[in-house]
Amino acid sequence: MFGLFQKYKPMKIRNFHDNKKYGVAARNLKELLKKACKQLQVPVAGAHVCLYEDGTEVTEEYFPTVADNTELVVLSREQTWSGVMCDVGWLLSADLHADRLIEAVKDLFSDELSPKRRKILTDLLLSLEDTSERESREEDEDWFKGVDVRFKTKSAYMKYNCASRIRGYVKEVDDATKTIQKPKVRAEFMKMANCLTDMLKSAKYNGCYFDRTEKETDRFCTQEGWFTCQGSFDQDVCQSLHSINPYSNLESRIIFSSWNLDHRIEKKRTILPALLDAAQSHTCTEINLGYFYRLLFTRDNLKLVHIACHKKGAHNLLCDQKKMFKRAKCTSEPKRKAKGKRIRVV
């Protein structure tokens, strides 16, 4: 008698591989199965119900605890469900045209509320919308939205993007000149800054690091355009396995702008102060500018890292004092006479 007064629970039901959902109200699991099987044309014998979210099987005892409007999957005897990844797995294994596959993922995403599953579907959608094989503006106009018209290829723009980042480091070197009070020291430091700039110009500001058409040894990415996070300054690899292909679509290109070129030995806290200190007592010709150039502008000291792996605290790494200055000439070398005759060494 009590069952007659049980409250109807509204639920959302769906089939094993059908994104379409239906509303059903039932007082218990038996009633739900009866209505759901009729609606979805699933054989009643052996039918069972699972939570769409994580695959938990709904029993008669568990049914009263299920929240109203919960999404349920109705399964036949031989079918199993382990959560949203079942949908993703099926989509990837299905023989669907790329456009249809993208639409199917978008359908899943539209009604999804779980942040974790939305993230999974977002990443999947980005990978499906991959147009990385297209290089020119004519081939992939969407990728070039907001990009100056002078850039005709993705690689050309990515090279410029990298060079712009590194060019910004030159400005920081120039700004350090303003902090020097003594005119003589300031003049010497300006010589150093100009030499470093000339070295960087000759390397075209190392824009090759982001250019997938460059030699493998000169770029951070694969030939297809994939970049992998190298982990924080104190790690050998990224623990989260972050990766991205900014060549693949517009959104990935924009997201990639948040990735950092991180100096292992810090630029502001360590490298520039060390260069300023050296300028106090040494001339431009005595300082090993090649060493400072590598620290400031090259992969010798730069790591490409995802924003989550970019540690902004002090790195506690110092410049190598033995490499900061040029080696003095060996005093044991035999001297030469003015006329170029060799002195006999006894």
Rank of each mutant, 00 (worst) to 15 (best):
M1F: 05
K12V: 07
I13T: 13
I13K: 06
K20F: 13
K20Y: 09
G23D: 13
R27N: 13
N28E: 10
L29E: 09
L29P: 06
L32Q: 10
A36Y: 02
A36F: 06
L40D: 05
L40M: 10
P43L: 08
V44Y: 14
A47C: 11
A47I: 07
A47Q: 09
C50K: 00
C50P: 03
L51H: 02
L51C: 07
Y52M: 06
E60R: 11
E60N: 10
E61G: 03
P64Y: 02
V66Y: 03
A67F: 11
A67Q: 13
A67C: 11
N69H: 12
E71M: 08
L72Q: 04
V74P: 07
Q79F: 13
T80F: 03
W81P: 09
M85E: 15
W90H: 14
S93T: 11
L96A: 00
D99C: 05
R100I: 01
L101R: 00
I102A: 00
A104Y: 02
D107V: 11
L113H: 11
I120S: 01
T122C: 06
L126P: 02
L126N: 06
E129T: 07
E129P: 00
R134P: 01
E135F: 04
E135R: 07
S136D: 05
S136F: 02
E139S: 14
E139M: 06
E139C: 05
F144D: 07
K145T: 12
V147H: 05
V149A: 15
R150G: 04
K152D: 04
K154L: 09
K159T: 11
I166D: 08
Y169C: 11
D174A: 14
K184G: 09
K184E: 14
E188P: 04
E188C: 02
M192A: 05
A193D: 03
C195V: 10
L196K: 01
L196N: 01
M199D: 09
K204D: 09
G207M: 07
D211N: 08
E216D: 11
T217P: 01
T222P: 00
W226H: 02
Q230G: 08
S232I: 00
D234L: 10
S243G: 05
S243L: 01
L250I: 00
I255S: 08
N260H: 12
L261R: 12
K267P: 02
L272D: 03
P273G: 03
P273T: 05
A274S: 15
L275C: 09
Q280D: 14
Q280F: 07
L289C: 04
G290R: 14
Y293A: 13
R294K: 15
L295I: 06
L296N: 00
L302S: 10
K303Q: 04
V305S: 02
H306D: 10
I307S: 06
A308R: 06
G313N: 12
H315R: 08
H315L: 08
D320V: 02
Q321V: 14
K326C: 09
R327K: 13
K329R: 10
C330E: 10
S332K: 15
K335P: 03
R336S: 12
G340N: 05
G340T: 06
K341Y: 09
K341R: 15
V345A: 14
V346E: 10
